[in-house]
Write a protein that binds this DNA or RNA. Structure first.
Lengths: 158, 158
DNA sequence: ACAGGATGGTTCAAATTTGAACCTCACGCT
DNA sequence: AGCGTGAGGTTCAAATTTGAACCATCCTGT
């Protein structure tokens, strides 16, 4: 909460290596995945993730807020992307019975087709950029560590 | 190189956990750091990183291309950000003696002051979001794994 | 010396992202 | 019922990002 009034605890060499590795890998992997998806399926990673989340949800539909929580975008960003997907016919908006304010995003048949077509290439890109690079032990460590980090930040930040 | 013609190798549960953790952590940590830096120092993370790279370089200056390689932005993105920093007086452009086309970005005194002022808060945010969350073992594993990933992608993608 | 192709940076328009302001509606309390 | 707060989404303007096109210069081989 408070900013330290005393000397900041600078990062030592190990810590710095972890931080730099994390930042570099984040950007590079994101770039890699983004490019593949855009070139081969005409989707951004965010759009792809929206389709994935919807496809995994019961009835293929989720409330906007739900969706915004699962992805990590701002509300307005989600509104924008869902609108794009709606224009493309991959997603439809539907109003919510129990709450007039609520909006469901629902994946369409065309959305399913697009997702099925895009998935193999995407998985290949993910393997190429991250999964197949690491040993099973490293993979387990990454899953464990970054899972912890995610949980922590989801809790505190919102 | 080739797209697989056979069945794609889908991710198993472990692999999926690693991938999801990676993506979520990337976004959440980026958000966290970005917000802190913007609020407390008026800098974007990219801008901060530019200052860091320049401050660590001999003469506090680097060629644009050098800089673009170290950060992970597009050339045009770097041009934009350096221009912003230049307007703010934190960085100056200088032409290159040995290559007329070349441009050096150089950190100014004001840039140094801004960087020094921003650093403690930034380090605290990095600790809060990532470093202090993990055990030393996890930290070592992350540094090792993501370092490998970065090296791999820097090599193949460019 | 010079054609041809790669490099270094910038410019441009288009797509995306962000946060703040806003509107409508839900809900707990009196 | 009626008020006040807050949640759910959208809208808006401003900032940023991207890739492609571009210009100027450098370098290689002949």
């Amino acid at each position: 909460m408070d900013r330290p009034l005393d000397q900041p605890r600078w990062l030592d060499e190990r810590e710095m290596a972890a931080w730099r590795g994390f930042v570099a890998a984040s950007n590079l992997v994101a770039r890699h995945v983004e490019r593949q998806l855009k070139e081969d399926a005409g989707l951004s990673h965010t759009q792809y993730e929206i389709l994935v989340q919807l496809s995994a949800a019961p009835d293929g539909a989720l409330r906007m807020t739900d969706l915004a929580d699962r992805l990590v975008t701002s509300k307005s960003g989600l509104t924008y992307q869902v609108t794009q997907l709606e224009k493309a016919g991959l997603v439809a908006r539907r109003s919510c019975a129990s709450d007039v304010r609520g909006v469901f995003a629902e994946i369409t048949d065309e959305g399913w087709r697009t997702l099925r077509a895009a998935a193999p290439g995407h998985v290949a890109a993910v393997r190429e950029a991250l999964i197949d690079i690491l040993t099973p032990e490293q993979l387990a460590a990454v899953a464990d560590s970054l899972g912890t980090v995610s949980d922590h930040l989801r809790g505190s930040d919102g």
